[in-house]
Design a protein around this nucleic acid. Structure first.
Lengths: 147, 147
DNA sequence: TTAGAACAGTTCATAGCACGAACAATCGTG
DNA sequence: CACGATTGTTCGTGCTATGAACTGTTCTAA
């Protein structure tokens, strides 16, 4: 299980590297797509990231014009985060990459078996109290060193 | 998949921390159990570890009296590695821990479903060209945004 | 109203880890 | 016998995660 997880993670991370992206970028972008306007703090804890890591990540996303900080109208301490049009556009392409990646990952199974596998994994995840879409992670490390 | 893999990894790593051990220790010990007398180099590459990391790891295992270096009779450069009695003993206890851990991990599924899941995962792993028992890995990080 | 605690975001410092380079001893091959 | 490759080892370097400290803001309680 661990082995497959890290294998999957690496494969995906390698593909992202071609875009100059880190899994973290994707995690933040897709989380943003679902929850625009939330604070860095909220998004960071949802992704399991350290506060200072969020700062660097958002700095980077802003520099690439993928996301932007806007003042939160209800709390002048906080920054509300939003996707830019380019961010939204990139996310669509990334979903393609992810789908392609999953397809290659599951190439040993036929469609019915894939469905069974996904269903079982989802039940395991639910029993462990994990929430969907949250990618703890590291980077390579979340596992393993890229060897 | 990635999420579950890192979750599993962390749970296991946490349990090991109670023994003062790192997943790497366990990887090396169990590999040793199957291939005693091999060189550090051979064991290291099998685990995906850097040469210098193997040195530190074996130093540690020797200091804990879990493994020992002996001169390789056929090559005076190499060290042949062996488990000590305490190492073998510890490994048995660790297998218990792993089993217990797996049980908790799969608690959402009944025995038949577990068997199905394992079979599917093994086929995926085989299709990906992964060899059994090799735990790439790192530590902490193996996860999330890793690499 | 105001003092103090709590909190968002940021910056900085530190520690830990992987990885590459360099070295001595040994092996293999010509 | 000379040369390149290999094993184990040490050292240095860079990257990353993590914690402490700081500013500005909000909340809570006298």
């Amino acid at each position: 299980m661990t082995q497959l997880g890290t294998h999957r993670h690496r494969r995906f991370a390698d593909r992202l590297a071609a875009f100059g992206l880190h899994p973290r970028h994707v995690g933040m972008l897709s989380l943003l797509a679902a929850h625009e306007g939330r604070s860095q703090q909220a998004l960071g804890t949802a992704l399991g990231l350290h506060r200072s890591a969020v700062v660097a990540l958002v700095d980077d996303l802003e520099a690439r014009d993928l996301a932007e900080r806007r003042p939160d109208p209800t709390d002048r301490r906080a920054h509300a985060l939003f996707l830019t049009p380019s961010g939204r556009e990139l996310l669509v392409r990334l979903e393609d990459v992810a789908e392609q990646d999953e397809d290659e990952f599951l190439r040993g199974l036929d469609p019915a078996e894939r469905a069974t596998l996904v269903a079982l994994l989802q039940r395991v995840a639910a029993a462990q109290g994990l929430t969907a879409g949250v990618h703890p992670g590291l980077d390579p490390t979340e596992d393993g060193p890229r060897r």
